[in-house]
Every structure is written in C-alpha cells, then in structure tokens.
Design a protein around this nucleic acid. Structure first.
Lengths: 251, 251
DNA sequence: CGAAATCGTTCTCTAATAGAGAACATCGTT
DNA sequence: AACGATGTTCTCTATTAGAGAACGATTTCG
C-alpha cells in the first residue's frame, strides 16, 4: 500500500513545529530538517497556507501554524466522549485528594493527557496537556502500557528508551518486569521517574471489551503523596473500578 | 503558482469533519462530499492515519480526527502571545462587569474567539471557542471588520450573507454603513444579531502598525447589559485603549 | 432467507504532478 | 561592495495522484 508522498511530507512538516523551539520556521530550515528541496517545501507551505493550516509572517517571511489547526484540535476534544463521561469521577478524586488528577489516553505508541483537574495547593504539580510521551514514561502511561499486547511492548522497548530524570527506567527488561507487576497489582505507583520529587499513582480504565486505552492518575509532590499512599491507592482503585463497570466492563 | 492537489484535498478532507454533525465519517461519504474517487479518499485517509492525523474505528471501519491534531491545535494556542498579554486585562473587565469577556481575532476572511472569561452569573451567555464565523456576524468580529481594507469588505459582502437570527444583517449596504459608524465611534454594540436576547459590546485592539486584527468584547443577556451600557462601553474603551498603547500603538 | 445495495479495500492505468535542482530576487552582514 | 543567507520561481522528468472498475464483506430489505 503506497502512501501519498506529498501528504505525508506535509504532515511531517506540520509536526515538525511541535518539536521546534521557535514558533516560526523558514523554508530553508524546514527543507534541511525534512531533507526535501526548498522548492518542494515552499509548494507545501503555499498549499497549507491556502487552507489555513499555515500562515506566513509578512515581516519575517517565515511560517507558523494556522488557526485551522486550532479548530481541528478543538474538534478532537469535542468528539472525545470519554472526557465528558469521566469528568465527574475526576472531580470526586480531586475533592478527596486535593492533588492533580489526570485522564491519560493511549494513541498508537504514545500516551497523552487529555483532561485534568488541578490541585488547589499553592505548591502543586502541573502536566503538559495534549503532548505525546512514551508509554513507559509516567505512571499513567505505564499502567496502560502494562495491558498492551506483548508484541507492542517488545517492539517499543527495542527502541531507544527516553529518560527524563536520573531515576527513569532505562533498561528494557526492568520496564518489562515492572509492567507485569503493574498488571498483577492493578495499579502503578512511582516517584521521580518523570520529575524528581513527584509521585504518581495510576489505575487503568477497562472498556466493555476488556481493553485498556485510558488511565486515571493522582500526581503530586512526593512529600505530600507518600504519607497518604495507602489511602490514595484505595481511592483511585475504587473510582476506576466504578468507571470501568459503567463502561460495560465485567471483570 | 500551482498547489499540491493531494495536500489540498487532504486539508479539505480534514476540515470536512468541522462541518459534519457526526464525528466518524466513511470513505464513501467523504468521496461523495469531496467529489473525489473512493480510491483517492482511501489513500488520503491511510496516509493521514499513518501520521496520526486520522484514526480508524476498527468496529465501524469509519474514520475520525486523530490526537495529533489536538497536539497541533494546542501548539497554536501556545504560540499565541496575544492571549497571555491580554489576559490580565480580560480579568479586569470580567471583574468590573461580571459578564462574558472574549478575545476575538481575525484569520483571513473569518473571525474566531481565542480566549474568554466566563460570567459568574447563574444565567450567562456562552460562546463557541476556536470556531470560525464570518467577519460581519458578531460585534467582536464587526469591530475588526470595520478596520479592514475596503477591498476585503467589498469582496466578502459580495458573497451570500449568512444570517443567524431574524435580526441579523442581511443587506450588504446596511453592513457597510454600519462598519463606517463603528469606525467612527470606536466601538460596536449590537443585540440579537447572533443570538436573540444577547447583547455584545466590542472595541478594537490596535497594534504598533495601527492595524486591527483583534478585539475584546463584553457579551451577556440584553436585560442585564442594556441598563448598564454607558458604563460598559466606557470600561471596554478604557481597557482596549490601554492595551493598544501597550502594544505600541500611538493613535 | 436470499437478493440487492452499500460498505471499505484493492487494483490497474495514464494524465497529471511531485519534487530535485538550478536560477533569481532580496535581504542583512561583513 | 561582496558575500551569504533568505524566500521565491522556474524547468524538467521520474513519479504518482486519482478515476474507475472489481473485490469481498456487511448490512438492508423484500
């Protein structure tokens, strides 16, 4: 099955803005990074601009992401029924713990947070919403990862492991055995993996088919989280079980 | 200048999800609506799926917008400095009026709300964020429209006027003369144009070049807004003048 | 229950074009 | 003034985009 090359390259172009530190990018820069000719990149940009996906700064002649992408991104959120369904449960957890509560979903080989309720503490942890990260990187992601096919797990762990702190997993085998643990005990708790001094507790959401494609987590400073860990683990398991059964899961 | 046809068609395909009532669309449906062959649409969808812009529901075989678009849309918001800059002023207006405050921007021939602060009243008006609408449709948009080139104005008013209520403008000449009024008095106030029983008051933001590409508005139920209109007009003009001068405008 | 319609997918084929590369115009810098 | 960077425009051909037909699998309906 062949893909449309120019479409694929345009998608790569747009996504390049996600990993670029500057919000405006030039033709030459893009052509180098994407290893495409300047002419080709220019034609792609012109086409994307005509559809509102890209705009050009008249002053700098450089290009930036257009509002049409904002419209489309918002549509993705609107389509996402799970958030609406889960929201009341997140709020309940937030009230019980007063820490950051997140809803995390899987997308192919990545995970991302699609909803959250912030803690009310003056010192609180914050997550980047709507940004991809590896399935092994955070508690919320790992608890989903643990329920994935073994083939996906092996496949992903074959690649280079991205570490975020000195305490992050870096050995594929260590991750794999942790995933087994997670699956057995039904939740995941970890500290310092993604951010030093931060502890996350996460539990999976099962849908009617018994599949796990989302998770809920409580995240906060370790000094507040660890003393309450038994209580928090109990709460998150209770709530996620209730959601799963509401989703039609009989496990 | 030729555009890349497959890229253009893929953009059209993605945008079609914005105007579709259902969040999942099939190949046949899309091919009919876009007047493209099923084979071509299928190839586009497969390519977009490989880049995370589209996903397929295995159960229904239909397609829906992917999380990558959420990432990109979020990036657009992050890049948008104006919101950060303007936010404190919006909050000030919100405190003063306790009605919905919006930040509206122009994008080509459309306008969209990119930021807002909700009213605290139990009965309050709400706007769709990040959705395009015509430059003549709302107070917030018209106050921007009034400062556009005459060529753009004439161009846009040549097309069919979309009306939203029985009170919406539908005559191009009426709109044009209203735009002159707006430009002269420096603000716009209107009722029932977009939603019956709703009144909006809007004033433009001038940048350092004296251009208007954004506006701020106060929107609420007419029965609360109208008795206070002098006060509200004064407040919004005061605040927008302050923002404009902070943006480097000396007018 | 079986026929017919509709679906998504795959295939073939050629007219159309995507993309490399060179040339050009316009900057700001040295 | 010359240079190096940019964005833009051009030419040209190997590639491919997209129409249309055919496929198997579902679903619909008589």
């Amino acid at each position: 099955m062949e893909h449309l090359s120019s479409v694929k390259n345009s998608c790569r172009l747009l996504k390049f803005f996600l990993q670029s530190p500057s919000k405006e990018l030039g033709v030459s820069d893009l052509s180098r990074k994407l290893t495409l000719s300047k002419g080709a990149v220019h034609k792609m940009l012109a086409t994307l601009e005509s559809e509102g996906f890209i705009r050009q700064n008249p002053a700098t002649k450089q290009y930036y992401l257009g509002y049409t992408l904002l419209e489309l991104g918002n549509q993705v959120l609107k389509n996402h029924n799970l958030s609406d369904f889960v929201k009341p449960y997140l709020e309940r957890l937030a009230q019980m713990s007063n820490e950051l509560i997140t809803l995390c979903v899987k997308d192919e080989r990545d995970a991302l947070y699609v909803d959250k309720i912030d803690s009310q503490y003056p010192i609180r942890f914050n997550v980047d919403m709507y940004r991809r990260f590896p399935l092994y990187a955070t508690s919320a992601a790992r608890v989903i990862f643990a329920h994935c096919n073994l083939s996906l797990i092996d496949d992903l762990l074959k690649e280079d492991i991205r570490t975020f702190t000195p305490y992050s997993f870096k050995d594929p085998e260590a991750i794999k055995s942790r995933l087994l643990e997670i699956k057995q005990q039904g939740y995941e708790m970890s500290s310092n993996m993604r951010n030093v001094g931060v502890t996350g507790i996460a539990a999976p959401l099962f849908d009617a088919n018994g599949e796990v494609s989302a998770s809920i987590s409580i995240i906060g400073p370790s000094d507040r989280m660890l003393p309450l860990k038994e209580k928090l683990i109990g709460q998150i398991i209770e709530v996620t079980k209730e959601i799963s059964s509401q989703l039609g899961y009989h496990g």
